[in-house]
């Protein structure tokens, strides 16, 4: 952050020298932002459409939300997805944080192999990990259910939490922990009373992120969900394949409000720890 004034000065000088260039770039960026938000705006707008049409807005109405309110199938799917999100978040939050601590502080050579596996998991196309999970479940004779969805989602979720928490851990000075140890705190007390409180924003943020991502995960969930109540994304998928109805607009608008506000909370937690110390939001996300 200490470089900020200099960079702003640089930008100012540039602006003075060639007035046209930033304006063009700013216009381009504005167009990109419009492109990113227009489809979502269309979905939200048409969720309030009085007509069935997706082409013409015939007036304001909440009929599609009312229809949702009375759709028992949707409710069951929503609850299933909330359960998936919550369970995945718990498992990944705990196992991922533990793994991050182990990778960063155990000093084991074998930890490099584990780290490589975490990275491979993160970059693997989701369809490949989903197929792998499906095969292990079917070969072991495990019936596909909500539990298999949670097991499979937690696998990639652990990798996400590990990377985010670990990047925070790496930016912490170990001197604080050494001070605690010098004062005769046990290793476990040090983790509990010193390290974890410092990591808390990163743990919370990554857990929230993983909740949102597993709540609306489609690919893994599609492969390993069984014949029971379909989780929300799987239900939406079959609804879209059956034919587009404005009811999906209403679901989409509600999910957008829910996931975006959770995501903003997670990002605010990142921002919180940036202002305290350490690198910014994006550097952290990149690990």
């Amino acid at each position: 952050m200490d470089r900020l004034p200099a960079s702003q000065g640089g930008a100012g000088v540039r602006r003075a020298r060639r007035p046209g260039r930033p304006r063009l770039l700013v216009a381009f960026t504005a167009l990109v932002v419009c492109y990113l938000f227009a489809p979502i705006a269309v979905v939200v707008l048409f969720s309030f459409n009085k007509e069935d049409s997706l082409a013409v807005f015939g007036g304001f109405s909440t009929r599609w939300y009312v229809a949702l309110l009375h759709d028992g199938g949707i409710h069951a799917s929503l609850i299933a997805s909330l359960e998936i999100g919550a369970a995945t978040m718990m498992i990944a939050g705990i196992a991922g944080t533990a793994l991050a601590l182990g990778l960063e502080r155990s000093g084991l050579r074998a930890a490099r192999v584990v780290e490589g596996t975490v990275m491979l998991n993160l970059v693997s196309p989701e369809i490949a990990t989903a197929v792998a999970a499906l095969l292990i479940f079917t070969q072991l004779g495990i019936t596909l259910s909500l539990a298999t969805v949670i097991l499979a989602n937690a696998t990639w979720a652990i990798a996400y939490v590990t990377i985010i928490v670990r990047s925070r851990l790496a930016s912490l000075s170990s001197q604080v922990e050494e001070a605690a140890l010098d004062l005769y705190a046990s290793q476990w007390q040090t983790i509990r009373l010193v390290t974890l409180p410092l990591l808390w924003p990163a743990i919370l943020a990554s857990s929230l992120l993983v909740f949102v991502m597993s709540f609306d995960d489609f690919i893994t969930t599609y492969f390993v969900s069984g014949l029971g109540v379909p989780p929300l994304p799987v239900r939406i998928y079959s609804m879209i394949r059956f034919g587009v109805t404005p009811e999906i607009n209403a679901i989409g608008a509600l999910m957008t409000v829910a996931t975006v506000s959770l995501a903003l909370t997670a990002l605010a937690l990142f921002a919180l720890r940036r202002t305290r110390s350490g690198p910014g939001v994006v550097t952290d996300l990149n690990g």
Binding site: L99, G102, V114, I136, T155
Partner: peptide, 23 residues
């Protein structure tokens, strides 16, 4: 810290590495 490595490592082994081998 070595103990802390265990749960995540086992999880990834059983639900990621072995399944990939199975594929």
């Amino acid at each position: 810290f070595r103990v802390l490595l265990l749960p995540g490592t086992l999880w990834l082994a059983v639900l990621f590495v072995i399944p990939l081998g199975l594929v």
